[in-house]
Computed example of a mutant assay.
Amino acid sequence: MSTHVPSRDGPRRSDSRFGLRLVLVAGAFLVGVVPFTLLALLVRNSWSPLHALDVDIARTMEAWMSARPRWRRLAHTLSDWVWDPFVFRILVLVLCVWLWRRGARRLVVWAITAMAIAAALSGLTKVVIARARPEDAVTSAPGGSFPSGHTLTATVGAGLLLLILLPVVPRRSRPVAWCATVVSAFGVGCTRVALGAHYLSDVVGGWILGIAVLAATSGAFAWWRHDTGPPAPDTDAGLEPGIHPAKPGH
């Protein structure tokens, strides 16, 4: 009668995989956090070249928008209604309800966690940097200027919608989904600068931090899914095996 002796290689391989995943998640976060931190330090210390560029763009956009009321109204509509942070939070909340009913509970946790981290980092950074908003702006907004909360929320919210729903989008429609995501994240930043609610560096900071949050949380989620459930059968199955891809040609 033979006796099975557990191999020591198993725990070692597990530890190796754990370390590799930890490095990958940390690396994904640092890819965004490092440039964001450098930008925040430049803003906090009012680095002359950056400050001059921000002020020059703000004044140019203020003059341009003031002379074009139709463009100003369009920017207000897009910024305050179509791409408002509240809209993205509602969309993610509706998505979470749908996911919960389909049994994709881990995706719900990921989506809520990513949005919560984005909101917390935005609020904390605004307090730490304490940057005043542009003067003589076309519109007014409360709170600090760096980073742009609209841009950060749009980047994370639109990114979540894309990453979660892409597997169920027909293949021929996926370029449209990608375009809608990019336009939403990029467009809201442009409207905030155009309206004078933020400097250009505020918007860039929102984009960078949003991408960092998405990269780190999606990496952590993929790690969690791999350790707590069966992997997806192929790359088209998306981030959660419970959300099935659309059939080819549909």
Rank of each mutant, 00 (worst) to 15 (best):
A58D: 09
R59M: 08
E62K: 13
A63H: 14
W64F: 15
M65Y: 00
M65R: 08
R68F: 00
P69S: 05
R72A: 15
R72L: 08
R72Y: 02
H76C: 03
H76F: 12
L78N: 10
L78K: 07
S79R: 07
D80V: 09
W81K: 12
V82E: 11
W83V: 00
D84R: 09
P85H: 05
P85I: 03
F86A: 14
V87L: 00
V87T: 15
F88P: 01
I90A: 11
V92A: 05
V94Y: 03
V94G: 04
L95A: 06
L95Q: 12
W98K: 06
L99D: 04
W100L: 13
W100C: 09
W100D: 06
R102Q: 13
A104K: 08
A104W: 10
A111C: 14
I112P: 00
I112S: 12
T113P: 04
M115P: 03
A116L: 14
A120F: 11
A120K: 02
L121K: 10
S122D: 13
G123D: 09
V127C: 08
V127N: 15
V127F: 14
I129A: 08
A130T: 12
A132P: 07
P134E: 05
E135P: 01
T139W: 02
T139H: 06
T139R: 09
T139M: 07
S140F: 06
G143R: 13
S148L: 11
G149P: 11
G149D: 09
H150Q: 10
L152Y: 07
L152A: 04
L152H: 12
L152G: 07
T153Q: 12
T153I: 08
T153W: 04
T155R: 01
G157P: 01
G159E: 04
G159R: 01
L161D: 08
I164F: 06
L165Q: 02
P167V: 02
P167N: 02
V169G: 03
R172I: 01
R174C: 02
V176A: 05
A177D: 04
C179F: 12
T181Q: 06
